[in-house]
Amino acid sequence: MESVLIGVDQSDASTRAMTFGVERARRNRWKVLVVYVVNWNPFGFTTPEDNEHRSAEREKEIAYARTEIIAPMVALADEAGVECEALVHHGKPSQVMADLARDRGLDLIIVGRVGDSGLREAIFGSTASRLVQHASVPVMVVP
């Protein structure tokens, strides 16, 4: 059975990617891995106050991602009767997704073209284009 990683966030493009991916998965009997990555840099500079609350903040970020981002996406897969696993990670989105696809031997990565990080991505390039450049498996970008 082939499996596909679908990278999601809160953007419309990501919902489109999920809808597209779930439809292909249903037709081809693929397994779906839904992944949301909280942008986080282990070498980023933080204030002492940030550090004090970091652990609690992380829990909140994960809880929020599970209910607000992952749950609606998993619902889409369930509706279509597609087998689906969901993961929330912290790190650099393109890197985490590429690593997951490689380590788990997945066959394809599907992501939306424009994520929800707006201006910053516009200046520094998007997760999608980084994935296209670096991932070791084929990447499908949904407009």
């Binding site: 500079f45 933080t46 550090n51 970091r54 970020e61």
Partner: peptide, 11 residues
């Protein structure tokens, strides 16, 4: 997602 050694040192 937690405070890394690097971050604690840098702070």
């Amino acid at each position: 997602g937690e405070v890394t050694h690097f971050q604690a040192l840098a702070t």
